[in-house]
Amino acid sequence: MSNETRSTGGLLESGLEGLSHNFFTGTLEELVKWARRHSVMPATFGLACCAIEMMAAGGPHYDLARYGMETFRASPRQADLMIVAGRVSQKMAPVLRQIYDQMMEPKWVISMGVCASSGGMFNNYAIVQGVDQIVPVDVYAPGCPPSPETLMHAILTLHDKIKNGELTRRKGEGAGLVVEQLGPNGPVPVTLGQG
């Protein structure tokens, strides 16, 4: 473990820094990352065309189960990964955010398809121009819709991210995105990932 070179955020900084050099904690960190990598349970969050391809990726030809991902959790409380598969409408956006908030840390988001990533070809009143305005996105999968192979590549990229990232990445720092949410007294800026 070469933990000296990187800053360990959150948990390890709160009085446990010295331990990060320790063989035991270093190995434990590796173990936890290994476990998280191999047990990413996605939330069933299908929206549009991409959802079909997402489900197809779970089918016999592609089989997400190989990564231990066939366990799509219907309850966001038990899910680790939200695959935003499809276009997010203005009406759906608050619901999406709510489901993201209901997920437990650590959680990741894959923005699947161009509509989720940037609004795609639907640059109009109805579609949120990029889901990263609502939730912090870890991996963007391009395509309209991305083929299952693309989704699998995105998932492998996410695995890499989990492997090389911080153990307690989001504590306090968040994605640093500021969005305006409509409160009862007009727009309220909210920094995502805090609190």
Binding site: Q90, K91, S118, G119, N123, N124, Y125, A126, Q129
Partner: peptide, 23 residues
């Protein structure tokens, strides 16, 4: 039915802006 309940305006009217955001 399609738009959120508190939406203002009727989107398919010709004088309603399409709401395009510059890329």
């Amino acid at each position: 039915i399609l738009m959120p309940e508190d939406w203002i305006g009727h989107p398919l009217r010709k004088d309603y802006d399409i709401g395009r955001i510059p890329v």
